[in-house]
Nucleic acid binder design. Structure first.
Lengths: 337, 337
DNA sequence: AATTAGCACTGAGGACCATGGAGTGCCAGG
DNA sequence: CCTGGCACTCCATGGTCCTCAGTGCTAATT
């Protein structure tokens, strides 16, 4: 049904359209690609490809443009991830080394990815759930307030102010801190709820209320708001593209963190590159964009995702290469921290 | 030179142009505003206003458009800050209360401001320099590493990992923590460098190296990266506007945090509303935008700035009202924290 | 059976032009 | 000093024509 040559034609159509942003015709194809056949033959193939829904014409007597289905086939079977050039790899390295803390690692990563791909880059903060508790700190803030700081082994710090405790006794806080750390330090976050269940009973009567408040805030801060934190860069790159949907819709979608999180989360095959093309994205405003995403983490434990958002008409091999490379480097940096 | 009526004409031109985004002619003005004179008279006034550089025509036989200078006069003398409606004030209140930590306060504030003004909102994190140290925490991370957490009275938390310390002794860390807190807790950040100067000498010989490392990281984290943190929202609102400069340039400028920080920092009159119009902005890409900014803080101590970026053709009274109101509310929330 | 050359046909986009209308500047009269 | 009147300007709109890239089809060729 789709012989070798038809696939070659599809590949050529995608590549040319990505380059020129103009519908590509049979003549142009015959010239620029060594397909070894005449334009007429290519036309015949194009008809077949169009019947199968891989390409389409904007109007009669125009060249062809790939459909989402066409891009899908291209990504799945006609292209391979393009490794970065040596210069690019060196750029990544020098860009990422020298970051002093997690915030800076993330900030640099996202800018780097945006620059490499010339598109919008998204980086999700390392998930809390997969990491373990390094230390819990409780600090009396004066008045009836307390600050709780949870430090994880991935370098992430979560802090909360706990209010309305009544009188806060420094010794009681200190005791509670000790108990807490003995109970959960080193533990996987997922294991924390179980480990603290019994704690209130071990606390002397008069401080039990405080302990319960602290624990509830702790659990809440672990359960909620985990993978919520996301950073963007390169939105300016969108201005150069003209979208089928309005630019406004795309920008709006990008500001909805929850949308982005779901988007990254929907990876088909974890720990691999995922590409979602056009209408495959559930979100209205992103119908004319594609998203290339990947997991990153230390070892083979995935901590979070990074990704790139661009027009469906994007350089998939190059973008995939950049995303994969950056994901790997971030993993290394994180492991080295 | 500029009598009452000419000023009224200028005001009318600005208001109409902001509403319609089309050059406004003498006839339209006479109709829509009760100026009490005929179009011909208005035309004469317009000639005068144009000679003085307050308005201009895109081309002969078109209506007039305000220049930057015209907007400047309008803002300075012809308009007053428009107070928010009751509904809007209630919206602010319900939107800002219930934020659990500083991150969330800032995040909500910026979204709120973007929504109220339908433009791009910028919020700077409360400056460290003006606040004082609540507590310093040192946490051994295992290996040769240490985490330092500085908590300030404005709820901001700064953390750093300190590496390459050689063997870390838990007791020594505990001692150092105690000394540090005794030395600087409650102190204004600006006073910290002076207060820790002598500390290393009080540390036993064998731990002095560690103390010096810790202190240098502490000082560094206080001096650098202070007002660097900035949050944006509402970039999607830019898509609706058509800029003289390309949208891309504007988006690029907005991604440059340093540019924004300088921009906000250049407030003419601290603790007041500042408006910078068009070419008054030093940055190329922002030549066709205006920026309305204000300080916020607790009491009359300014902690940082918030602002709005939009086309020069913006609703200045309304935007100024929103910025002022939000700045005040944030101050209150921060004070209540 | 597949490929190719030839050819008539299609539709978008650009150049060109005419027209209408909003807006101006200026002058003379109130 | 204001106003009505008037001639003038120039943009925007819309229609027409033409070009041209690209198509689909058919007949010839391999």
């Amino acid at each position: 049904m789709l012989d070798e040559r038809k696939l070659a034609v599809l590949r050529a159509v995608v590549e040319d359209f990505v380059n020129t942003n103009e519908p590509v015709g049979s003549k142009a194809l015959a010239d620029r690609h060594r397909l070894g056949v005449s334009p007429a033959t290519i036309r015949n193939d194009m008809v077949a490809l169009e019947e199968d829904g891989y390409i389409t014409q904007p109007h009669t007597s125009a060249g062809r443009v790939p459909t989402d289905k066409g891009y899908r086939l291209f990504v799945d079977r006609l292209s391979s991830v393009k490794p970065l050039s040596g210069a690019e790899r060196r750029a990544i390295e020098s860009f990422l080394t020298g970051a002093v803390d997690l915030d800076e690692i993330v900030a640099r990563t996202v800018r780097l990815l945006a620059q490499l791909t010339r598109q919008v880059a998204i980086v999700q903060y390392p998930s809390l759930t997969r990491s373990s508790v390094q230390h819990v700190e409780l600090v009396p803030l004066g008045g009836q307030r307390l600050m709780m700081v949870v430090i994880t082994d991935t370098g992430r710090v979560e802090q909360r102010v706990i209010d309305g405790l009544g009188e806060v006794d420094a010794d009681a806080v200190s005791d509670l801190r000790g108990m807490l750390n003995r109970a959960i330090a080193g533990l996987h976050l997922a294991a924390v709820p179980g480990a603290v269940e019994d704690l209130p009973r071990q606390v002397p009567e008069e401080n039990r209320a405080m302990a319960i408040s602290v624990l509830s805030v702790l659990l809440e801060s672990l359960v909620e708001r985990h993978e919520e934190k996301i950073v963007l860069a390169g939105t300016a790159n969108l201005a150069a593209v003209d979208f089928a949907a309005s630019l406004r819709d795309v920008l709006e979608a990008l500001e909805e963190n929850m949308v982005l999180i779901r988007l990254l989360g929907e990876a088909k095959d974890p720990s691999m590159l995922t590409v979602r093309i056009g209408a495959e994205n559930f979100h209205e405003g992103l119908r004319s964009t594609s998203i290339v995403s990947a997991d990153y983490g230390v070892g083979n434990q995935s901590l979070a995702k990074i990704g790139v958002v661009g027009p469906t008409r994007m350089d998939y091999p190059g973008t995939m290469g950049a995303v994969r490379a950056v994901a790997r480097y971030v993993g290394q940096i994180l492991a080295g921290q």
